[in-house]
Amino acid sequence: MIKAIIVDDDKSCINTLEKLLSKYCPHVLILGTANTIAEAIDLIERKKPELIFLDVELNGEFGFDLLKHPSAIDLNVIFTTAHEKYALKAIKSSCLEYLLKPVDHNELKAAIAKFEGQMHLANNQKKIEVLLSNIVAPDNSFNKIIIPGHDSHIFLNTSEIICCEADMNYTNVFTEKGEKIVSTKNLKEFEETLDPKTFFRCHKSWLININFIKKFLKSDSQVLMSNDMLIDISVRKKDEFLNLFKKF
């Protein structure tokens, strides 16, 4: 049994989610609902839920702000959002769960299952920290990222990443410390999450951090990274790549 609350400024959204939960995830018990952050804090303090369904945009309030409150700091959260692109990016960067409205019941079931599977992982607070740090970062320049692996999450500063390699639907992340982290996210998602001013998609299979480029090999159209990896620059991307350095 999961004790949960729903925070949403739209009462019909609350109603729909409640109905969906009772139909598809009947073991999720809704202890109460709130329309504002203040109401939500009150509800959390009184009912002590394990999980919050939190709308990102609460009628002028920012749903994330709830997570800054001491009572909510180590609560598990599943965001619900309609079309907030920027917020979605930040959520993705922190590996927190989210549901798009209208909520697909299959995705809902998956999210609940995932929550149940990860309840033992006490890294929620860290995720929220990443989220809150990224949400205030100016356009896409996220400083932190959480990389979802098969059985764990790895917290990284984006400045530690040297490059990312596509590996079928997975991604290999190479770090400054010489690690190779296998992420379950595909390269496209990394490209969307990481700051495009720093990370450059030089190839179908490669995303590189331009701060770690040691050398550009003109003849072979390759770059040498600081960890001595040689990475191809595709023909079509060559001009764009060179333009990046024109300003230097």
């Binding site: 079309h83 798009l100 409205k101 209208p102 697909d104 019941h105 299959n106």
Partner: peptide
């Protein structure tokens, strides 16, 4: 209806 709705919303999101 729900299945239908989910497909539609997915489709619209993708279109956008």
């Amino acid at each position: 209806s729900i299945t239908h709705l989910n497909s539609l919303s997915k489709l619209m999101r993708q279109t956008l």
